[in-house]
Design a protein around this nucleic acid. Structure first.
Lengths: 96, 96
DNA sequence: ATAGAATATCTAAATATATGAATACTTCGA
DNA sequence: TCGAAGTATTCATATATTTAGATATTCTAT
């Protein structure tokens, strides 16, 4: 994937207010304060399938990861990946 | 405008490959190497109205600015604004 | 095995975005 | 003033995204 495609994917994932609010709720790599998908959906005021869709977009962009714990799934932000992408883009931009 | 709306606007502007390529071509605050809108359109392989549309999105997001010089208009990236936004988002994300 | 809970996928409808053609506007030189 | 060049806006169409409801899948406990 080219730089442009890479950053485009990341920024597209970050471009929806509902996904930003979601990132604001999800815990960092430690799983403290994690919520189930159902609880997240309720908190965000969207349906569970809709939330799954957004989580999928964030996951495909590499911004979140998850751990299955029994019946439930706990998502968390991969902050280190996010920061690497932002730093990479900043560098890419300045190099021109 | 709330933080979420603010960052959403910026990231949406950065989410299209054609706009990233455009940012890669536009000069920084100094006007060295500036191209006219027509030349930019040709270089990007899109029509001039389409380019104007994308420039408008970037401008509304605060990412680019322009100077009129006679008949021509020269756009440039407001790198300092871009970096402030990225840094702000990073801080916003980590604070959660 | 089976039921129930949690999450993901599929489907269809509504909305938003991207694009080019046509046209309007602006500026400069003749 | 007029014409030409450069840029912006309008409009219609094509494509993509968002959303919820219905359904499928996965896991656990009985």
């Amino acid at each position: 994937m080219s730089d442009v495609e890479q950053y485009s994917t990341v920024f597209k994932a970050l471009s929806a207010p509902v996904r930003l609010r979601l990132l604001g709720i999800l815990p960092g790599d430690d799983r403290e304060g994690a919520l189930s998908v159902c609880n997240l959906a309720e908190k965000l005021g969207i349906s569970q399938p809709c939330l799954s869709h957004h989580l999928n977009i964030l996951r495909c962009a590499g911004l979140v990861r998850f751990k299955k714990d029994g019946c439930s799934t706990f998502y968390f932000v991969d902050r280190s990946y996010v920061e690497r992408q932002l730093a990479g883009f900043r560098k890419w931009m300045v190099e021109r």
